[in-house]
Design a protein around this nucleic acid. Sequence first.
DNA 1: TTGAAAGCGCTAACAT
DNA 2: ATGTTAGCGCTTTCAA
Lengths: 338, 338
Amino acid sequence: MAGRRARRTPSRVTTISDIAEAAGVSKATVSRVMNGVATVNEEIAERVRRAVDELGYTRSETARSLSLGTSRTIGVVVPDLANPMFHQVLHGLHRAAERDGYRVLIADTLENVDGEADVALDIRNRTDAIALFAPRMSRAQLLELLPRIEPVVVLNRTTGKRAASVLIDYADGVRQLAEHLVGQGHTRIAYLAGPPDARSNMARQEGLDLVRSVHPSVEIVDVACGFSFEDGYAAWPDLQATGATAAIAFNDVVALGLLGRLDEEGVRVPEELSVAGFDDIPFSRFSSPSLTTMTARLGDVGERTWQALQAEMRGDADREPIVFAPELTERASTGSRA
Amino acid sequence: MAGRRARRTPSRVTTISDIAEAAGVSKATVSRVMNGVATVNEEIAERVRRAVDELGYTRSETARSLSLGTSRTIGVVVPDLANPMFHQVLHGLHRAAERDGYRVLIADTLENVDGEADVALDIRNRTDAIALFAPRMSRAQLLELLPRIEPVVVLNRTTGKRAASVLIDYADGVRQLAEHLVGQGHTRIAYLAGPPDARSNMARQEGLDLVRSVHPSVEIVDVACGFSFEDGYAAWPDLQATGATAAIAFNDVVALGLLGRLDEEGVRVPEELSVAGFDDIPFSRFSSPSLTTMTARLGDVGERTWQALQAEMRGDADREPIVFAPELTERASTGSRA
DNA sequence: TTGAAAGCGCTAACAT
DNA sequence: ATGTTAGCGCTTTCAA
């Protein structure tokens, strides 16, 4: 058509050239009008705007990004969008980025560990920087990936300074929780464990080990569980078998699943069994009974993640891990040992 | 540098040209290797791969998309990622798109109605097509936007065939729910209404109007409420004032918030008050008591959305609205009138 | 099999 | 104030 070598893909319906032609001006002028450059003659600008309206033109952000060398967009890779804990971080991150004129695009990996790196690379290569939320891949994979996707900040995984990291101190959080239960007189506590290979589960285990060493008389027994409502619901028989008077769930979702089961089984909470969660997801205030849990100011975590990302983009990041210490939020699901 | 007119933006660290130079081949050859074109001499291909590894090169998806005229990526615009109802649809859509080799990128509008159209335009201009989940904008705005973002499919809003649409039949769903309660002997039913201007709320109102006309002896009273846990929790006083023996909540989230409040207030469910929700979000099975709700096979809705999107992309869509009829899932939160 | 170069749709430096 | 054109980083046609 235009050139000697025809292009096979129709690509877009209307381009800046079409507008230029329709308005009888150059592409540069159209570009100026589209970007609100003030030096354009009002009459011409009006002609351009009319052409834009009539042809229903919207510019290609892809072409624009390529030309500008930046997209003012960041990506976020999330392992599971259904996890409420991520929403709150995402929300804080989103608001902060938005305030600075950045868009955010989210990619869900659907807990598919194998595809995680590809998704990260893909979204990174369409944006200016990315945040990796609790990546599930192995440490080796992660360390190999990081230099290829910077600027990047990682949530809840250590990076050995190969990237910025924002960490929630799960070890200390669980420690606080256990100490609280011990303080209430519980001497036999069950831990409904998360996925065995999850870093966040290991961190919790560390915290519990500390409690074990500080309180030799207290027994903390592990019960294999998981991360979902179903897992919490299904854990009851094993939990019951431990004879524990209190249970620390891997997270709120698990705790809520358990609470549902306990209600069905007629087990009174906290009279017969205290239950605590982790994350303080929004629903925890409204469960029956309301859930004792650890709060980590997740919105702030998101805000901080954005700041770290900006530092990475500017190239002046020190990459010192940013760690958030969770705080206990005591509600109705825990109480003194019967 | 290269040309007479230096470019100001550093843009990317490593480009295909760098690889070509390092490997002593042309860009075309690098491109071939990157895309697995078979006709490349193995020795040369190996040289290229080595260069790629050493320089840590990953290609710009932006440039690639521009060149190819397609990104094999679709966008999804969601008004509120925290709403569990969207996750299930998203999940179904994602799985289906993935199966066909498409990536999906998500943009959350944070319930900001004013920015909704801009977000949609932006993400659309980086992807091949988009899905609009329950857009909040006015009908006029929506109809004006649609032709500018096609191929597009809209969830839970009618489009007058200006785009494909997938609809959940809320009117009929609520009707079924109300009929069920009437069948249980309830003659005074409260409806905890959603946002007054939300289309999905209006649809529910229509369904209730039908029930009112069919059962003149049954009173269905509206209680202004909302869409969140908090809204459901806060609605109790107004609800109590109606003297209703059953409540239909705008959605499960509202119902769960209410359930939490009722537990605190010592109101027994369903003995003193039956409570029903809508959407069948995952937690509904695990609440205390478990929640009676309407199920709409949300995963299928997502799958169908993808099919509609594909038809739009191919240009052979008939745009006949696809409607899903929800079904009643009876659980423990509803029962016969005392 | 490989390379040169045009072209994807835009922006901006430079010239007028 | 407006136009011309190089260039962003790729892919692919065409020629060799």
